[in-house]
């Protein structure tokens, strides 16, 4: 990977939330929500950040956009030939960069202001960024509505008149208003009905092809992720446990957690589940992670080393990263 086509390079990203107890609010611990995450995204590609609830994927995404300040690490964002570290940039210098990175939210019902008409929702970022001329703005909004396949006749309607899928189109149009390079989409289809999910996924693929967008796609659903991403990073308790090209990761996972996730994903084929791996116990507590590999209490391949030593994320083949002491020796089952 040459350095020049990297749009986002995340190094050692951490977000720890303090736990305070008692009358004096004394610090009694840390929730290590994101605990040393590193990856980079090439311009024009989709990297999926997947994991179950509490794995830190949303927190990581929010730190990357500086919606919340990270505790440590670097978020190097390259735009117009210039690289800046979003993690440490003063707020004032951050502001003009915000137009280059936008977010699409999970819930299209709560992420749109119910008192604004669709045209104003989509046009608001334009107004804030200095497009004061009403007619100009209207023209751009109309263009954006066409882009996401919303009839421009809906300009003056309120969000409540729209279905979930249409609302998500509105959210996408708003995110695209300022021609961003990077879109962070946090579970963009998980609140939608199946028959509408496919429409939005296809739209996101089309827009990426047409506009050269880069996506950081945060999701829990491995089936959805397979349809949109070039590469996948699997997170568990605040860390990336495996990162690889989509096809490779699904076909030949190297981390036992990836194997279990793939095996647990329901497939619409009756009688296909004979070999399911059902993990025991529950996801580790990020405030009190187990010693050694955080996955070892649920891992059926764990050895003594896994119980005592924390594995590091290592590149085991070009472009394949895995954090497992036994990577490569296990012969895990994939799908597809």
């Amino acid at each position: 990977m040459s350095g020049s086509d990297i749009i986002l390079d995340v190094r050692g990203l951490k977000k720890h939330f303090p736990i305070r107890r008692g009358l004096l609010r004394r610090l009694s611990g840390q929730v290590r929500a994101v605990d040393g995450v590193s990856f980079s995204i090439r311009r024009g590609e989709t990297l999926a950040l997947v994991g179950e609830s509490g794995c830190g994927k949303t927190t990581a995404a929010r730190c990357i956009l500086r919606a919340i300040p990270p505790s440590a690490g670097a978020v190097n964002f390259t735009i117009d030939g210039r690289t800046v570290d979003l993690a440490t940039l003063p707020r004032r210098q951050l502001r003009p960069l915000r137009r280059h990175m936008q977010m699409v939210f999970q819930d299209p019902y709560s992420s749109l202001n119910p008192r604004m008409v669709v045209g104003d929702i989509i046009g608001e970022p334009l107004l804030i960024n200095g497009m004061a001329n009403r007619a100009e703005r209207r023209a751009r909004v109309t263009q954006l509505m066409e882009l996401v396949q919303l009839p421009s006749a809906y300009f003056n309607r309120f969000p409540h008149a729209f279905s979930g899928g249409q609302r998500q189109r509105i959210g996408i149009a708003r995110a695209l208003a300022l021609n961003p390079g990077l879109i962070v989409a946090d579970e963009p289809v998980s609140a939608l009905d199946v028959s509408v999910q496919a429409q939005i996924l296809n739209l996101m693929l089309d827009l990426q092809d047409r506009l050269g967008l880069t996506y950081l796609f945060v999701a829990h659903d491995l089936s959805v992720v397979k349809h949109v991403s070039d590469r996948v990073a699997v997170m568990y308790v605040g860390r990336i446990v495996e990162l690889a090209e989509t096809e490779t990761l699904y076909r030949r996972p190297l981390h036992p957690y990836t194997e279990a996730l793939l095996s647990a994903a329901p497939t619409p084929v009756p009688g296909a589940i004979s070999s399911r791996i059902v993990l025991e116990r529950e996801i580790a507590d990020p405030a009190n992670p187990p010693p050694g590999c955080p996955f070892h209490p649920r891992c059926r391949y764990a050895t003594d080393m896994c119980r005592s030593e924390v594995p590091q994320l290592q590149e085991v083949e070009p472009g394949r990263w895995v954090s497992c002491h036994r990577a490569g020796e296990l012969g895990l089952a994939g799908v597809g």
């Binding site: 199946v194 999910q197 491995l222 397979k226 070039d230 793939l262 497939t267």
Partner: peptide, 13 residues
Amino acid sequence: SIPTVMARPRTRL
């Protein structure tokens, strides 16, 4: 229209 883990990556549904 259901996404599945069996699909080829980046295929439209």
